[in-house]
Design a protein around this nucleic acid. Structure first.
Lengths: 316, 316
DNA sequence: CGTTTATGCGCATAAATATTCTAGTTACAA
DNA sequence: TTGTAACTAGAATATTTATGCGCATAAACG
């Protein structure tokens, strides 16, 4: 049996008319309907649910189809989403906007079943946060890179993978290692462990991946103090123009043979290239060169980017 | 030349979508659009104006047509408006509701030109308050009764007439006398003055009138202490069942020959009966008997009343 | 029936939104 | 230029709206 009796439509219509059409405040409506303002607030919510009040907004096209097509044909992308972002928006707001409007796109690109490799980063975090709960998937989510530093933040692959599984169900395989270690020997030690080897296997067989594409300048690593200005200079010296999952690549999309290469614990770019569906996320025109390189190297197959970034990419 | 450049529709659409469709708060929208929350608030208002956002409410029929027809045919009314009011609403809320939904009806009943007599009272006040400015009329508004007591309130005919003229334009003739004086002699003194005589003439030739119909029990006069419980008893003894403009009438709608009759300065009921369009307002079932009498006496030609009042009227 | 578990209500108050006020900008005239 | 008027923006603030909470009543259960 349903509830006792939800409020009659007549009352809802009256309250809604007084509030929306006649422009009275809820307190005033309350006097006329003879209930508390509190109740009017709730009544109006119900009226909205029931469709007695309908709010329609002229469609806002958050994506720039034209640029998307251009990107796809020019770079042979599987799919692309170019998100309009307020002019003069900082990179922070850009990521935020991309996240908001791009999440459905990314969710649609990702498979419903199989193995999904997930990298870290702020852009990816913005996306994952906005995945809708409910549409249960059967994914095996695999952490594609270690944690950036000891204080795990919500942008670490560890947290993002966890979040995806929490929302969509499925299994989550963690790396439980740092992203960067002090030297090759330490890295090899980690890689030799059974857990890592197990995860590593899955990563190599991943059906899809979700990663951020960063430039050297604005990487999380510098921000978090993992990489110093000197390190950046060294990497640039090796030809690095971009980074994915802590791995640096040159303008041709080849992983740079830097001294960092042996200290990273994350999916190797050559493996990434073999994953059929890789969704890359990049925010800001500053990242254009990095994205261009990633596309050239074939690391990224689907792209989520902002308008300015797309324009820079097409121009460059 | 118009303004510099109002905000582009694109931005409005974006903000409106984020706010209404996606359910973000204005502060969050502000981050994405890169302006202050203040601005978003204003932007959303503009979006509503421009029709980018549209809010529609299922029509609420505030009037009970069926009862209106019954009233008209039963009492030979020119027109009637029966306003739905929340059950258990007190007389205060009833007046308020009648005022809100009844004002357009009353405005439509009143002429655009000619002489309009205006009485006082809370019901009338609720109506007048809600007349829409703008539709300029050429009325000569005449105060139909003196002021209830020395502290003029916004329900006095004086204020109501003033308000009508302020909204609709036209001329306002005031009585500048109290409604009740101490004795017949004083009243005659007032009536003999040139100003009053002038106004009196107009009143007699009024084309329309707007008055409240009250019972003895809840009249403003008792509330304001102008009439004592003893006075009420006396009036009842004279057969009074209702009051209009400070004048009391019996069940047949005849003005009672009470000792108060000679102390009132207001339009006489016999004159009122001759005015072609008289809109009467009554709130609450308690007034039913008074309204019935007023109708029988032909004082009121159009009626604005609440549902409960109408039902009581038809039942009695 | 008496007891337990829900549901609904409005108060107090937190949160969100609108408005006021001040300062900065632009456009135009002197 | 420089002053002035007319706007525009955002910070501070007032107002309005939503929500957590406890109480009271009603439904469900034993």
């Amino acid at each position: 049996m349903p509830k006792k009796e939800a409020y009659p439509d007549e009352t809802l219509r009256m309250a809604a008319t007084l509030y929306y059409t006649d422009g009275l405040g809820q307190a005033e409506v309350a006097k006329l309907v003879r209930v508390s303002q509190t109740k009017i607030s709730r009544l109006l919510a119900v009226a909205l649910e029931r469709g007695i009040v309908r709010i329609s907004v002229e469609e806002y096209r958050a994506r720039n189809d034209k640029l998307e097509h251009q990107l796809c044909s020019r770079f042979g992308l599987e799919s692309a989403a170019v998100i309009k972002v307020a002019r003069n928006a900082g990179v922070e707001a850009t990521r935020h906007t991309i996240g908001h409007f791009g999440a459905p796109f990314v969710a649609a690109q990702l498979p419903v079943t199989g193995v999904l490799a997930v990298g870290g980063g702020r852009s990816v975090a913005e996306i994952v946060q906005r995945f809708r709960r409910g549409e249960t998937r059967r994914l095996t989510v695999v952490q594609a890179m270690g944690s950036i530093d000891s204080s795990i933040s919500h942008v670490d692959a560890l947290e993002l993978g966890r979040a995806i599984v929490k929302l969509w169900g499925g299994e989550f395989l963690t790396l439980s290692t740092p992203a960067f270690v002090s030297d090759k020997k330490t890295r090899d030690f980690f890689l030799a462990s059974d857990q890592i080897k197990f995860v590593w296997q899955r990563l190599r067989r991943a059906d899809a991946a979700l990663v951020g594409v960063a430039s050297l300048e604005n990487s999380v690593y510098t921000e978090r103090g993992v990489l110093t200005a000197g390190d950046i200079a060294h990497l640039k010296g090796c030809g690095a123009v971009g980074e994915i999952c802590g791995r640096f690549f040159d303008a041709q999309g080849r992983e740079c043979a830097s001294r960092w290469r042996d200290r990273v614990i994350s999916i190797e770019l050559d493996y990434l290239k073999k994953i059929p569906h890789v969704v890359g996320i990049a925010a800001g025109a500053e990242r254009a060169a990095a994205v261009a390189a990633a596309l050239k190297g074939g690391m990224v197959k689907s792209l989520l980017i902002d308008e300015a970034g797309a324009q820079a990419l097409l121009a460059g």
